[in-house]
């Protein structure tokens, strides 16, 4: 399991808490939860400036007031401005990825998409999200 910090951005407090609990069940990265896109960018900027970027950023596309896409673009701008490598991003949405989203992810670089089932209870959703995060971190750690 990867060490370091992971940013999790979702306006749904309950989902955020459950996901953090699920990730804490095993030794993993410290999870910093952000309830908005602006909070995510702010935290990311602080970590990047301190040269301690997170190992992964997980964000819901439908954030506010800065949505997930804009927040991700801001993260990439911070990295370029500071001359740092891009941090992997995991996007999740209730809608399937269309060509437009795939194109966006491709331009963003080091970004993947996860579709979440809208009809699942929060606890189940959090477990699945935690599993996806662990798999991604394991893959990144082995890369």
């Amino acid at each position: 399991m990867a060490e370091g910090r992971m940013l999790l951005a979702d306006a749904d407090t309950k989902l955020g808490e459950r996901t953090i609990e699920a990730l804490r069940a095993e030794a993993g990265p410290e999870v910093v939860w952000c309830d908005s896109g602006t909070k995510l960018v702010s935290v990311y900027a602080r970590l990047a400036k301190a040269r301690k970027p997170p190992v992964l950023s997980v964000l819901e596309v439908g954030l506010g007031p800065l949505d997930g896409r804009a927040a991700a673009q801001a993260m990439r701008a911070i990295e370029k401005g500071l001359g740092q490598p891009p941090v992997p991003i995991l996007f999740y949405t209730t809608a399937p990825a269309d060509d437009e989203l795939r194109g966006f992810l491709s331009r963003l670089g080091r970004a993947v998409h996860l579709q979440k089932a809208a009809d699942l209870p929060t606890e189940e959703l959090a477990k699945r999200l935690a599993i996806a995060v662990k798999r991604l971190l394991a893959k990144l750690g082995g890369a």
Binding site: G37, T38, K39, L40, V41, S42, V43, Y44, A45, R46, A48, K49, P65, L66, D67, A70, A71, Q73, A74, A77, I78
Partner: peptide, 20 residues
């Protein structure tokens, strides 16, 4: 196109907060 002025401004404020 891309990131519009509103988004850029919100992101700039967030960066300012992060950088102090």
């Amino acid at each position: 196109p891309g990131m519009d002025g509103r988004e850029a401004a919100l992101a700039m404020r967030a960066i300012e907060a992060g950088f102090g």
